[in-house]
Design a protein around this nucleic acid. Structure first.
Length: 265
DNA sequence: CCGGATGTTCACCT
DNA sequence: GAGGTGAACATCCG
């Protein structure tokens, strides 16, 4: 699935292709995909509304709406789990992630809205790990990793003994960083994923901040969270593309982690 | 056949 | 309270 890089592409797709179109029906074939008490009947509130803005915070896509009299309507929140994609009028956004053989399978459409012009916006998610909600708690997410400032990052990491990588992936502290981006950023910043998050020196913190922002921007241009320099080496017996040393593999922050013990300190 | 995969949430420990 | 672990979700891939 998507980390923030892919969700940003979905946001751009929604902004370019889904705004201003009146919603005539909601498709909710999978009740399990509706989160936080949301039900299919409750989604009818979207009918007659149109989306007026597509925003993103971390991995959460937010679609603001207004109703038929231009009064504020519900905010639709979409999460994509590990295999979710956004489909508008049958077209997907970014380059391929995984499950490419399934992209055309409408069987995996878990949620959608139909527009009065006959088109539609859908979430296609084979693994079903994403979800839909109305009025998601945006404030429960930390600052977005694409725009976070140095002082905000310092606050997000401060006074924590948790492993640095675990803290970077804590969406409540800092929104958008997933497993692949975390490994890539730490590799670039020469920081060990298991360093206590609150123990970085000012210089290390600046380095981490610089690489976080640069990496997010660069992977966005390259077209995906999987386009990092470390990606091809994230496997057993993988070696560091910088110095050729064997990469270490372990579970950190609950996720499989690869790093170079030689240069990541 | 089996393990693991770009995520989140929850129960249960320490 | 802070963190860690494992399970669950469902499908595909090597």
């Amino acid at each position: 699935m998507p980390e923030m890089i892919e969700v940003e592409a979905y946001r751009a797709l929604a902004e370019q292709a889904a705004l201003g179109r009146t919603i005539s029906a909601v498709e909710a074939p999978d009740a399990w995909y509706l989160k936080r008490g949301l039900s299919a009947p409750a989604l009818a509130v979207l009918v007659g509304c149109r989306f007026i803005a597509a925003r993103r915070r971390g991995k959460l896509l937010l679609l603001d709406s207004v109703d038929g009299t231009d009064d504020p309507g519900p905010v639709l929140g979409l999460r994509f789990g590990m295999s979710g994609r956004l489909v508008v009028d049958g077209a997907t956004a970014v380059g391929e992630l995984r499950y490419s053989s399934n992209e055309a399978k409408a069987v995996y459409d878990r949620f959608g809205v139909v527009f009065a012009d006959g088109g539609h916006l859908r979430v296609r998610d084979p693994r079903r790990l994403g979800g839909v909600e109305l009025g998601p708690a945006e404030a429960a997410l930390g600052h977005d990793a694409a725009t976070i400032t140095l002082s905000q990052l310092r606050d997000a990491l401060a006074a924590s003994r948790a492993p640095l990588k675990a803290r970077l992936m804590d969406q409540a502290r800092l929104a958008g960083v997933g497993n692949l981006i975390a490994d890539e950023v730490l590799w670039r910043a020469s920081l060990s994923p298991s360093r206590p998050a609150g123990d970085l020196s000012p210089a290390e913190l600046r380095r981490l901040h610089r690489h976080l922002r640069l990496t997010v921007a660069e992977l966005g241009l390259r077209g995906g969270s999987h386009t990092g320099d470390l990606m091809a080496h994230r496997r057993r017996d993988g070696t560091c593309p910088r110095d050729g040393r064997l990469l270490q593999r372990a579970t950190v922050g609950g996720r499989t982690t690869f790093w170079c013990p030689w240069h990541q300190k």
